[in-house]
Nucleic acid binder design. Structure first.
Lengths: 132, 132
DNA sequence: TTCCTTGCAAATCGTTTGCATAATG
DNA sequence: CATTATGCAAACGATTTGCAAGGAA
């Protein structure tokens, strides 16, 4: 199963790199479609899954039941707004020490962790004030 | 919308309390059905959702796309085995400090976080050795 | 020419929901 | 009696997949 080039895959990846808001497959599809009208949703899913499996992109599961994708594979954390559902990057120091904390009293192999933070984003907080 | 007693809800909750492996709705259904054959999957889902919304139980989203439920609502963390998919409790000290770390350079309100650890559980590690 | 990739549509799967009926307070 | 809960089945929404045709190596 050697990988062959595909225009679709390229366009999907290129699009994902332009976004820092971690779009869903549907959003990727809607956008990529402007420039590549014949592409199908299935192809978008297939390629996002392929890229994620290869480790070229990251699949984010932030609890809303919809997968989000991130072209940035470096270690960083995410914030999910409970109000608007937006997913944003969090600028913060590494919390990788929690892996050590977890390993202390556990008989298995802990390889990694998934952490995301939730609350109300700045934008929603402000618009809530106005609404009152 | 005052809550009324229901035998089904009781049985579902009782069952959940006997388990420390965080079953899925389907597993709850299969088990509860032995003792209550007429119960429907929809009722199981409705009650698990209701209990989770009330804060009586916890809904766990550990990245496998299927919701798991936990009758233990105290603060604790989970480990997910990448091989068998099992979800177990992790005995570890609190890592709530990561909330402070995350709040340092963020303009919104961070209310909480979701963290789970993954790797290979003890049981799978051992059976892998045997298989070789 | 080999075989990876696509578009399309149908299929899957976990979960939710509408509705008429049953149970609770 | 008013209202909440149930069983059943149909509906949903995100994602996957089978298949015949298209494109890359």
């Amino acid at each position: 199963m050697a990988l062959k080039y595909s225009r679709q895959r390229q366009v999907i990846y290129d699009f994902l790199m332009t976004r820092k808001d971690h779009p869903t497959a549907e959003t990727v599809y809607q956008n990529v479609r402007q420039e590549y009208p014949n592409i199908s949703l299935g192809t978008v899913y297939r390629n996002l899954t392929l890229l994620a499996d290869m480790g070229t992109i990251q699949r984010l599961r932030v609890g809303d039941g919809i997968d989000h994708f991130d072209a940035d594979t470096s270690e960083h954390y995410h914030f999910v707004c409970s109000e608007c559902g937006g997913v944003t990057d969090l600028k913060m120091e590494s919390i990788a020490e929690i892996l050590e904390t977890a390993r202390k009293d556990f008989d298995g192999e802990i390889q990694g962790h998934v952490t995301y933070f939730y609350g109300i984003c700045d934008k929603c907080t402000k618009s809530n004030l106005l609404r009152k």
